[in-house]
Each structure stands twice: as C-alpha cells, then as structure tokens.
C-alpha cells in the first residue's frame, strides 16, 4: 500500500504506507508545511523521506537511518504515475506537452485489470471513439473529432482496479460531467459481466 502526499512545496510524493518507527500507515498522517507527520507519535518526515523530528525527544536530531521508503512519482496529464519496481522511472505514455488536460474522475471497479481494460476499449463514451495509444498502464481514446480521453489503469489487487480519467480538447470542460456519468455506467457494465478467466 502507498501513501501519497503533497507538501507546500508542490510535488506529489509516493511512499510506502508505513512509518519506519512502529509500522503505522502514513496515509493516516497529517501534513505541516513541507513535512508529513505520522499520526501515532507525530514523527515528522521531510519531502526526501528523512525523519527530522521525534516529539518524544525534542532535542534529538533523528539519525539518518530513520527514513521513509519512497517510490518514484511523476505528475503528468493530471495523473500521478509510479513504478512499484522502484528501479525504473514511472511508465507514463508520451503524449507530447503536458497541457490542457482536465480531470474527469477516479473510480474503482471490483474486477481484474484485464477485464476493465477490455471493456474500456469497446465502451460507448458518447461519440465514435478510437484507440490512439495503448500500453499496460493506460489507454488513450479519441472521442469524436474534438476530444482525447486518457484512462490510466491501476491494478489494486487480483480483483480490483482503479480507473483514472482525464480529458482534453475542444468542449472537454463541458463534457466532464457527462463522461464521469458514463464511467459509472462502464463500471456497472463491467461488474455485471461474469468474471473472465
């Protein structure tokens, strides 16, 4: 599990959801300035993961070994991408300049990623659509002649999948509400289907 947070300095950080002290999920923590603080004992972590304050010992400079474990995090097209293998960069598709993308919504489907992916490809988003690009973590659809919708596919576990959608193009702003509703229908359609092996 992951904890995602953003300090006042801006960029999103993705960390293992576990305080190195006593294993408390850091996603339950709270942000103060440019630091994430664990809710259990208030330990404070700088954006690079280093622990900088232990309230039980106000005079102590925390040792370098106390450091939250982080994953790469890239914000692109209004979506945050990571790589759980940690070695490599976050695998977002190359869609040219990061401009003009508007959020549609995030939504979770109680089905495996493969089934969600297949359903997205054939779903009716309200105008003739075509697959413009596809990689294991995202699908780019052309919708009508004016719009492009990017759907990032997040396999949560063997039978749950997150879908994160953004849109750009003329009329994209006006289309967001309708596209968000259509994604609800998409979810209902997928979950009504029997699970495919």
């Amino acid at each position: 599990m992951l904890a995602m947070w953003r300090g006042e300095d801006g960029p999103v950080r993705i960390w293992e959801d576990r305080c190195p002290h006593r294993g408390m999920r850091l996603s339950f923590g709270f942000v103060r300035g440019d630091a994430l603080r664990c809710i259990y004992h208030g330990w404070s972590y700088r954006t690079d993961g280093q622990c900088i304050e232990i309230p039980a010992h106000p005079e102590l400079t925390p040792p370098k070994t106390i450091c939250a474990s982080s994953y790469p995090a890239e914000s692109r097209y209004g979506i945050v991408w990571t790589n759980l293998e940690r070695g490599g960069p976050a695998p977002f598709p190359d869609l040219g300049p990061d401009e003009g993308w508007l959020p549609v919504r995030s939504l979770y489907v109680n089905r495996p990623a493969g089934q969600v992916e297949a359903a997205v490809e054939s779903f009716d988003f309200g105008a003739p659509s075509s697959i413009r690009l596809k990689n294991p973590s995202a699908i780019l659809l052309g919708i009508g002649s004016q719009m492009e919708m990017l759907l990032a596919i997040q396999p949560v576990n063997a039978d749950r999948t997150g879908l994160h959608a953004v849109v750009r193009g003329e009329n994209a702003s006006a289309a967001r509400a309708d596209l968000a509703r259509r994604m609800q229908h998409l979810r209902a359609e997928i979950e009504a289907e029997r699970e495919k092996k």
Binding site: R18, M24, R25
Partner: peptide, 13 residues
C-alpha cells in the same frame, strides 16, 4: 483502535 488496526504488518516484527 484506529491506530492498532492500521499498523503494518499486523503481526509484530
């Protein structure tokens, strides 16, 4: 209880 049920792992290292 909120804390205890959200420590990872639940088992004690």
């Amino acid at each position: 209880r909120v804390i205890l049920e959200n420590q990872r792992p639940a088992l004690l290292p």
